[in-house]
């Protein structure tokens, strides 16, 4: 029971972090069809910016400034890069963002060095908030949950209650019609791209000190964000939310459940020895394949339902 509760909380924290990263990508991907490989780079940039800014003015201004910087970079990328590449097709756009991801990683290495930077949790939040069955729940995790929940509510309000939000929603499914009605669709694109990048930056600010801030963090996070977006389905923020929480919980629970297929079979009366075929595959413990489960789920859902969990359009 204690393991369950603690893992549930940790899974929620990780899932909400994933959601913050992937909600922006869902909007970008569904609206513009761009498989943005540089999205996780914005996450990394957010963490590094926050690290540098917090050296000078502290963590709290960084919480606002770093995402804003990322958003500005995102807007510039969309206006001066992606928009020009758009006419050359989806693969060109994809390679553009891929090249960008390479450049950003290298620039980060050249600016902040090859090893991880000491980006730490702010001192004001560095205490155990409460303890569950003897395990401390850190105040910073509660803060992460709070920020992500606030962000979720404000995105939801912005998309459903504001005029711009309604236009964005309409552009998700019928971009041509929105353009025909006289709205400036390219500007909406820029706005969404900048907003999505800023969200990724925010995720970096609060995730960078939760995890490790290092140059490889973008390429470590990139695939899992794609998995969440595609699993949740294009054009659906709800699907993205469910997928994020699911992936967060799966990955957290997989670490604590030390079982393997062999144990399951033992319950059924079949004992696995080293001479059984595929013994190695069957006896791998769950914590080791935890990182793989999202990909297995991705492949499975796409085979059955190519639109993803709650997608409104074909991918």
């Amino acid at each position: 029971m204690e393991v369950f509760l603690v893992s549930l909380l940790n899974g929620l924290v990780y899932g909400m972090l994933l959601f913050m990263l992937s909600s922006g990508l869902t909007l970008i991907f569904s609206m513009m069809g761009v498989l943005n490989f540089a999205h996780a780079s914005a996450y990394m940039l957010g963490a590094y910016f926050a690290f540098t800014i917090s050296l000078y003015v502290g963590f709290w201004p960084a919480l606002i400034l770093a995402p804003l910087l990322c958003g500005l970079i995102g807007a510039a990328i969309e206006m001066y890069g992606l928009r020009r590449v758009h006419k050359n097709g989806h693969i060109a756009e994809l390679l553009f963002t891929f090249g960008l991801a390479l450049i950003i990683e290298k620039c980060v290495q050249m600016t902040w060095g090859l090893v991880a930077v000491p980006y730490r949790v702010p001192a004001g939040l560095d205490f155990p908030l409460f303890s569950v069955y003897g395990t401390n729940f850190h105040a910073y995790r509660a803060f992460m949950l709070l920020i992500s929940a606030l962000m979720f509510v404000s995105i939801w309000l912005a998309l459903t209650r504001t005029r711009v939000g309604l236009i964005i929603q309409a552009s998700l499914t019928h971009p041509e019609m929105v353009g025909a009605l006289g709205h400036n669709v390219p500007r909406v694109f820029t706005l969404v791209f900048a907003g999505g990048t800023a969200l990724a930056g925010l995720a970096g600010v609060i995730g960078g000190n939760y995890q490790v801030t290092e140059p490889s963090m973008a390429f470590a996070m990139g695939p899992i964000v794609f998995v969440v977006v595609v699993f949740g389905g294009l054009g659906s923020l709800t699907g993205c939310f469910i997928a994020s929480l699911l992936m967060g919980l799966i990955q957290t629970f997989a670490i604590v459940l030390d079982y393997s297929l062999a144990d399951l079979l033992k319950q059924l009366g079949i004992t696995i020895t080293s001479s059984t075929p595929f013994a190695e595959v069957l006896s791998v413990p769950l914590p080791r394949i935890g990182a793989l489960l999202p990909y297995i789920l991705l492949v499975l859902i796409l085979l059955v339902k190519p639109r993803g969990l709650m997608g409104t359009r074909d991918t």
Binding site: V230, E280, V281, I289, L292, I296, L298, V299, L302, P306
Partner: peptide, 30 residues
């Protein structure tokens, strides 16, 4: 499995398979 789908779904399935095999390569000694 992968060719059941096309376009982006195909791309994503192959990405998933790629990650799976790469991780399996580190996991299975045999």
């Amino acid at each position: 499995l992968a060719t059941k789908q096309r376009a982006t779904a195909f791309a994503m399935i192959t990405m998933g398979m790629g990650e799976l095999v790469a991780a399996a390569a580190l996991m299975f000694m045999g």
